[in-house]
Design a binder for these strands. Structure first.
Lengths: 149, 149
DNA sequence: GCGCGACCGCGACACGGTATCATCAAAACG
DNA sequence: CGTTTTGATGATACCGTGTCGCGGTCGCGC
């Protein structure tokens, strides 16, 4: 029974109290939407979704709460080639990489322990202490690869 | 004697004439600076460097020429976590990844054929036709890892 | 040279992301 | 219980990157 077994919302509240931060209705609502929306979404998308539930929440608060979720280790930032920051739910058991279709934008999550192993090996060989990584493969997905152009 | 044996500037000119584009003095100057500046640099850095040689060149032209170099396959865009687009010289023989110090920003280039192999394998397993990838490892470099904080 | 079409550089703009600040609510304190 | 203090919120202004449009210029084929 480690803390990673309980649901994410509770882990978020734990983090907040550990840091001495208040658990406001806005932060709870944002976290709930975040955890209920799998995949990779920009602030814009989260903001729109949250506005439907509580139109009174400002985009600044969404930013700040997503940053909090990152600090808590419950969210990850993703940088794609379009220079828009996306957020995804952090899964501590399966740190995954991304396979992205350059045509339609579809994102497939991939996870390969062999690559993880090589990354650690390379970092150590260069004397680096590894914190994290971002690994994105770009290509044409099965649906798009056959469409000539 | 393939085209990859001749110097990059000539390959750029070849590309231009193949595409029916004009070889202007600005484009030649920008390409020359680009090929003479190893590493990973933002537009800002290239623009500053070029301004010292020819202050009359506008930043828009630098943008456009760097895009041309990418199209020609002589340059690559790099996306780091700071949402600034960087450009590097594309080395067709050693497609390398990046090991980045999260403290001081130092970038070490790495190249591991085993990872390349795994990437291809993963893409194929998912039915993707692979175009390229971006692979960045973040950590603390030898100089920074010992400084507590 | 000459003319035309491609290109240049400037300014303006679009956009994501951040900092500021007044307001408000809730906790801390006497 | 009233006052003070702290922290969260949301509107707005701001900054930097990157793009667009337009008037003027310059390569390049003739």
């Amino acid at each position: 029974m480690t803390s990673s077994d309980i649901d994410p919302q509770s882990r978020f509240l734990q983090f907040m109290s550990r840091k001495g931060l208040n658990t406001t209705s806005q932060r709870k609502a944002i976290a709930e939407v975040f955890f209920g929306l799998p995949g990779h979404h920009s602030l814009e998308e989260f903001y729109r979704e949250i506005s439907r539930i509580d139109p009174g929440i400002g985009q600044t608060t969404v930013y700040r709460t997503l940053k909090l979720l990152c600090e808590a280790g419950l969210a990850n930032e993703i940088q794609l080639k379009d220079n828009i920051t996306r957020y995804e739910i952090a899964n501590p058991n399966a740190h995954h990489d991304h396979l992205i279709c350059a045509r339609c934008g579809k994102i497939v999550e991939i996870c390969d322990p062999r690559i993880e192993e090589l990354q650690k090996e390379i970092a150590e060989k260069n004397g680096f202490k590894l914190f994290g990584h971002s690994h994105n493969l770009y290509g044409a997905c099965p649906d798009c690869r056959d469409k000539n152009n």
